[in-house]
């Protein structure tokens, strides 16, 4: 009996492989922060327009995810965590990811322009450019500050949401940007301390590799100190209020305390308890961002 194979090697892609190219988990953060930025803005927007705007911002984020995977396929193939991604596993070709990313980016920007306004659309286009060209292509492989500057790309969505409603930028949207921007380094470096990935082999300069883990610990604490005033300041603007301020003061105190504890430890004690403190701070950082933006929503709901 002859068994004829229609293909060899990697199997053909399924629909979900193309969905995976859009980094749906990163998208969920984009959706939430963009929605909050849009919703708390002082201009009323029709709910369906809000829905469409957030969807197209998320689609733009997904497009930059696909372009990131296209460019980073060589790194992804080396690191174990990312080896199963659609391109390194051979299910989707690099060219397909590039085409999908560019196509979706154009659709997302044009549709956001039609749904909301062209300032927000231009802002989305700039964000995609920033993430793909400035971060992925340029900074990620060049400087250990990659996380810091790349964090700006993740910090733009609430500003785009705000721009969808108001058509511009204001101190509130800049402070929402600062909240995510200064949150990103301690969040990722806490992860880098206990996820010992082979960034070195992949040729990506991570602070833990280039400057050592003790320096990384000091940086984590430093950024929690820088972050706190911006988080509190946001509570004193037109979208802040007592509920937000209470949440912000509590979370920042916890985050600074966590950063302090991470800094005071050395590798030996961290290995001894399996990076328990680092993992706790990483978990706290997830709650930190989510609860800040949730507090903004609640504050808007009860009135500022």
């Amino acid at each position: 009996m002859i068994d004829t194979h229609a293909y060899e090697g990697a199997p053909e892609a399924e629909f979900r492989d193309y969905v995976a190219l859009l980094k749906p988990r990163v998208m969920s953060l984009v959706v939430f922060t963009a929605f909050v930025g849009l919703w708390v803005a002082p201009v009323a927007v029709h709910p369906f327009v809000v829905f469409c705007s957030v969807l197209f911002i998320a689609l733009g984020g997904g497009a930059s995810g696909a372009l990131n995977m296209w460019y980073d396929a060589d790194i992804d193939a080396v690191m174990r965590r990312t080896q199963g991604r659609p391109i390194p596993s051979g299910r989707v070709s690099g060219g397909e990811a590039l085409g999908l990313g560019l196509g979706l980016a154009i659709i997302a920007v044009m549709m956001l322009g039609l749904a909301a306004n062209w300032f927000a659309a231009g802002f989305l286009a700039f964000t995609i450019f920033f993430y793909v060209v400035i971060y992925t292509i340029w900074l990620k492989r060049w400087t250990p500050q990659n996380i810091v500057i790349g964090g700006a790309a993740g910090a733009f969505p609430p500003m785009i949401g705000w721009a969808c409603a108001t058509g511009g930028i204001s101190i509130e949207s800049l402070l929402m940007f600062a909240l995510i921007f200064f949150w990103t380094p301690p969040h990722f470096w806490a992860l880098a301390l206990f996820m010992k990935e082979d960034y070195h082999k992949a040729g990506v300069p991570m602070l833990t590799v280039t400057h050592g883990r003790a320096v990384t610990r000091r940086h984590i604490f430093g950024y929690t100190l820088v972050l706190a005033p911006f988080a509190i300041w946001l509570g004193l603007t037109s979208i802040g209020g007592p509920i937000y301020l209470a949440v912000a003061v509590l979370l920042n105190a916890l985050f600074i305390l966590g950063g302090w504890r991470v800094m005071r430890r050395n590798e030996d004690s961290a290995i001894a308890d399996g990076y328990a403190t680092e993992k706790r701070v990483f978990k706290l950082s997830l709650y930190y961002l989510f609860l800040h933006f949730l507090a903004l929503l609640v504050q808007h709901w009860v009135g500022t």
């Binding site: 892609a13 399924e14 629909f15 979900r16 193309y18 327009v49 969807l55």
Partner: peptide, 24 residues
């Protein structure tokens, strides 16, 4: 099966997009 999943997925996306433009 894999091709079917791609076809159905793309079909749903296109129908959804048309509905979105109509709603807007």
């Amino acid at each position: 099966r894999r091709r079917h999943s791609r076809n159905v997925g793309l079909g749903l996306v296109l129908v959804g997009f048309a509905a979105l433009v109509f709603g807007l």
